[in-house]
Write a protein that binds this DNA or RNA. Structure first.
Lengths: 203, 203
DNA sequence: AATACCAATGTGACTTTATCACTGAACTGG
DNA sequence: CCAGTTCAGTGATAAAGTCACATTGGTATT
């Protein structure tokens, strides 16, 4: 079955059509869903798993723009689907994921026939725009030590990640992350090991 | 008449409906189109003029996210219109502008009835997403002196702007802009005056 | 015209972040 | 166990951000 909320709202006839036309794809961790420059073959509706979308600048540095999880829509693909331009970012599968791939034809049909589907798409776009606006603000103005601590706080220890990967999460350099982490370790806020960070519960 | 390309594509009946329902509004320079937190009263289709959209972070610093000009759609408003959440950013009118205000009702009707209208909206969203992604990359990784020079290059001298305003354009601090400009002046690339920058045409 | 005022700019001192270059430690697969 | 590789640590230096305050140029006021 296709457990994606945007499909649940469709009238029976459309739902049947969707189920027939949609291909469910399964992606193992480490798989690249799409790369920068590639063309879009369909709109992925995330059924399960976790995918991070990141971009690499001219300098060669990368930054994670946002993540997608169950019930998300890969908004970025819509633009590529409609305009035919290539992706500007890259999507990396973090956890085993499933996605329902909606073809251009079906997408057009659903947009035409279902107000609820349209609403879902618009909301998804809105959220992504918001996310990116917040990210701009964050990158432009917030201090790296704060951002790092915040990032660490919202995960469950032990966190399995390298300093390099963490640098990409925050859009900074590996050395900066290493130094800040060392500082946190000195303060007793974290314990460090190769490829692993334990956040120590404070008061 | 309503000279916005997204309206030209409508079939006669819808176009008539649109013209009847749409209110054209005129905004003088300096006017705030909307502020952070405010609610959306309609989707502005830009007919003429120039509006900058900027955001102020928790720190109090601001950054210009993008600009809108003739024939643009205020994509940000769509999200607010659909979800009822307030704006996160602020829109500042730079040049006398006219916008056709599309109500929620008309928007829904056009989305329902016109594939071309939907396409226009989707394209607008896609462009904005792209803009913001590029901005993230720019802010995260590019050097400020390069960004400043680039910004100056694409305008016509004399540029009437204060260092503070320029800092908001680039998402940095006023002092940084002042120092970089002074450096450029020493190199003979610009001439500085109060509230004004002359870019000197190089080889 | 002299004065007062204020926004805009200049700058020193210092902190934070980025970059470069290199070292050493920890894991992996023979 | 060894060789190769990935990951982490760190010094030196440059770029950018922050804070505090001085100076300047324009405008309004007497």
């Amino acid at each position: 079955m296709l457990h994606h909320s945007i499909l649940q709202t469709l009238p029976p006839q459309l739902q049947k059509e969707a189920v027939e036309s949609i291909q469910v794809m399964r992606f193992p961790p480490g798989k690249i869903l799409f790369r920068a420059g590639e063309h879009c073959r369909g709109l992925p509706l995330m059924l399960s798993g976790a995918v991070k979308v990141q971009m690499t600048g001219a300098s060669g540095n990368s930054i994670v723009l946002y993540r997608m999880g169950a019930d998300d829509i890969c908004t970025l693909s819509i633009g590529c689907l409609m305009t035919g331009y290539g992706y500007r970012a890259e999507a990396f599968v973090e956890e085993e994921s499933e996605a329902a791939m909606v073809s251009r034809g079906l997408f057009d049909r659903l947009m035409d026939q279902s107000a609820a589907f349209r609403l879902g798409i618009m909301e998804s776009y809105g959220r992504r725009l918001d996310d990116l606006m917040l990210l701009v603000e964050e990158v432009a103005f917030r201090r790296m030590d704060e951002r790092l601590e915040e990032w660490l706080q919202v995960r469950r220890s032990p966190i399995h990640i390298t300093h390099q990967e963490l640098a990409v999460e925050l859009g900074t350099a590996r050395e900066v992350v290493s130094r800040l982490l060392k500082e946190l370790e000195r303060k007793g806020r974290v314990r460090l090991a190769r490829g692993r960070i334990d956040v120590i519960k404070g008061v």
